[in-house]
Amino acid sequence: MENVIEVQNLVKKFGNFTAVDNISFEVHKGEIFGFLGANGAGKTTAMRMLCGLSYPTSGSGIVAGFDIRTQAEQVKRQIGYMSQRFSLYEDLTVLDNIELFGGIYGVSKREIAERSEQLLEKLQFTSEKNKRVKDLPQGWKQKLAFSVAVFHRPQIVFLDEPTGGVDPTTRRQFWEMILETAHNGITVFVTTHYMDEAEYCHRVSMMVDGHIEALDSPQNLKLKYHAASMGEVFDLIARGAKRSD
């Protein structure tokens, strides 16, 4: 199977504190990979290194065929990114946002026009394209943010707790879009601390105190830990955690 992310012995230290402690894993092409862990387990730090935002203390990583240590700029070109905190400019219109992010990733003007029309049609947003983002319902914002993150057709899209504070109905619609994206061959790398969402992933890794404690498909993990849900699996694994913030 083709790998789009390969990580070996990745370590990140802040002074005496080891945020990410020697992690190794692969992510396959077209996979939905869940990157789970409690607050403060080191998820965000690890993800920042993969996105080329943070330089690892030691270890190596290949993302979309580029080295995260030496080719951070190329890595950034190949990925999409969305987080719960920042995703869209609320005071710009739907179309402005699409054009802006398309432009940032170097999509040509003609293609932006073409693709945004398709996108708006697919999301049934065409009539709302000149509305400001802040006037949209939460669920629409979420969908739009995700669409913008994959607008330039990246190889991998990183989602940092994309559904934090979002209600279940919206989350369901959101995951449907993720399924579709993966179906179209874009790899999805998602961090979350909602364990019910872990069930949607093809494989999940569980991070505890900076290292990866378990990595498998949700089904296998549930079998292995004799648990009925991923929530239980997480509780069993996280019980050993020492770190909490």
Binding site: E176, L179, E199, Y200, P218
Partner: peptide, 23 residues
């Protein structure tokens, strides 16, 4: 093929709703 399944089930007559629910 979960994603294709979702859309195809929705096309079947007699089904009120089909939605993702974990795995």
């Amino acid at each position: 093929e979960m994603y294709r399944l979702l859309n195809d089930v929705r096309n079947i007559e007699g089904i009120e709703e089909c939605y993702t629910f974990g795995d």
